[in-house]
Amino acid sequence: MKLGARVVRDRWISLGVFIAIAAIWQVLSVIYTVEAVPGEPMVAGWQVLFTKTFLSMADYWAGGLGVPSVAEGADRSYPAAALSLADHSLQTIIRLASGLVVGGGIGLALGLAVSWSRWTRRLVDLPVQFLRTLPLLAMVPLFQLWFGTNIAGEILFVAYGIGVIVFAGTVNAVRNVPSIYIDNARALGASRLTLYRTVILPAILPEMRSTVLLSLGTGWGAVLGAEYLGAQSGLGYVIVYAQQFAYLDRMFLIALLFIVYTSISYWGVSKLTARMLDWAPPSQRL
């Protein structure tokens, strides 16, 4: 079988697998009709998810834009539901993006600063290793204690999670730059700063790719963690409230939305970074 044909076949199989899972879920919802709370099935079929559950998202709409909210006495409507989902998604994505920028920036800057000499690198080695082993999501209570429930604390939490990974990734990547590159640039009379700008920064890019993808995954987890405790908006907030009333169908809808978002972001970032690394020899692309 030719490689191209195999790729096409694999795509069809993937599609088939997803359809099969969806179908199994539907069958399960018909067979297993136990309800978590009256009126809320443990396994919600697709017909429920896309009508009743989707409509119930209108409950989380705060009003505005000419679409009245449920709190104002209006009935649940599709526009309100759609707007509410869009709004909460946007809140989550803003938190994630700010955290990525802040944490990624600080992590990269500190990582490069520490890599200045072998001495500083050894000095930070153990503390960073320790910070990395601390379970990030278990630190949510600590951040809540420090920053309360305002948005700065949520962003800082995401930034911390991402910063630690980017920092460690940067230090590691600089360490792995072949010393011949550095020696050669030195022999040609490059100063430390020139060396950083023209040799080290480009050389660590291929290795930073996996760090970026890893921090993206951590970021999605961290933003949810931040919203779990105290946020008044965002997808995490919707999930927490749904869980308190055991509204499994709402949780499932948000989970699906989340899978779609994470998949899109992974796909986008890996395409983008692959494109940015076109110049690197294939053996260096991770």
Binding site: V17, A36, G221, L224, Y228, L248, A255, I259, S263, Y266
Partner: peptide, 25 residues
């Protein structure tokens, strides 16, 4: 591989805080 890969890839991207409430219920 063609059958298991998409399942594992999707499962791998689900944040733990999304999966945990379902299992708890």
């Amino acid at each position: 591989r063609a059958i298991i890969n998409p399942v594992m890839m999707t499962a791998g991207t689900v944040p733990i805080l999304i999966a945990a409430p379902f299992l708890l219920i």
